[in-house]
Design a binder for these strands. Sequence first.
DNA 1: CCTATATACTCGGCAATGTCGAAGATATAG
DNA 2: CTATATCTTCGACATTGCCGAGTATATAGG
Lengths: 108, 108
Amino acid sequence: MPVHLGEFEQLVLLALLRLDDDAYGVSVQREIARCTGRAPSFGTVYTTLARLEEKGLVTSRMGEPTPERGGRRKKHYVIRPTGRRAVEHSLKAIGKMARGLDVSWEAP
Amino acid sequence: MPVHLGEFEQLVLLALLRLDDDAYGVSVQREIARCTGRAPSFGTVYTTLARLEEKGLVTSRMGEPTPERGGRRKKHYVIRPTGRRAVEHSLKAIGKMARGLDVSWEAP
DNA sequence: CCTATATACTCGGCAATGTCGAAGATATAG
DNA sequence: CTATATCTTCGACATTGCCGAGTATATAGG
C-alpha cells in the first residue's frame, strides 16, 4: 500500500529536506514561496504538516525559546525515512512519465 | 491566477503528451500503469479527464468506430497550450524545490 | 506587574481532487 | 438478435488543499 502524496505535500516534504535543521511552519512557507513563487497561507502549511505527521511521514519537536526577541516557541519538523521514501517515489513517478518529453524541467 | 494541478492531474496530462494522437481513457490509464506501476481505476481516469476539460486544459473529440472488433467509440483527448503550460509550471516548481537535494530523480 | 509588539501555532470549515464500483452504451461476429 | 469485447458515465464518499480569524507565548520597557 503505497503512501500517496498530494501535490502540496510533496512541496512541504521537499522543503523539510532542504531546510534540514531549521524547518518549522514559518520557514517552510517561506522556502516554498522563495522557490516556487507561490505564497501558501500559514494555515495551509500547518494543516499539511499536521497531516503528514499523522501519517507518520514526519516528526516534530518543540523548540526552546530563543535568546533573541520574543514570540512563541517554534515547532520543528523532521522528515522520517518513510517520508523520504514517499517523496522519492512520487518524484520517480513523475520523472518516468516526463522522460523523453520536451517539457522543460529546469528553471530558466 | 495560476491554474493549480493536483498530483494525479499532472500524471494524466503527462500521459496525454506521451500518447499524443492515441490518447483516450483506456490508453491513458494503461500508460500511467506502465510508467508508474500504479493502477488507477478507469473511473478515476475519466473523472480527472472530465475535470481537466472543464478547466479548459484539454479538449476531446469522439473517434470513429474502428474496423477492428467491437466496442464503444473512443473519446480522444488532446492537451491544450494552457494545459501544457500548467504541467510545465508544476514540474518547474518541483524541480526548483528538489534542486540540490540528493533525492533520486531518475528511475533505476 | 502590565502592556505593547513580535512570532508562531491552532481551529473550524468549505472547496478541489482522488478514487471507486457498478451500470450503461455501442461496435462487430455469428 | 445474442453474445462478447470495448469504452465511458454516474453517483458517492475519502483525502487534500486552502484559508482567515483566533489563540499562545516570548521579550522589552515603563
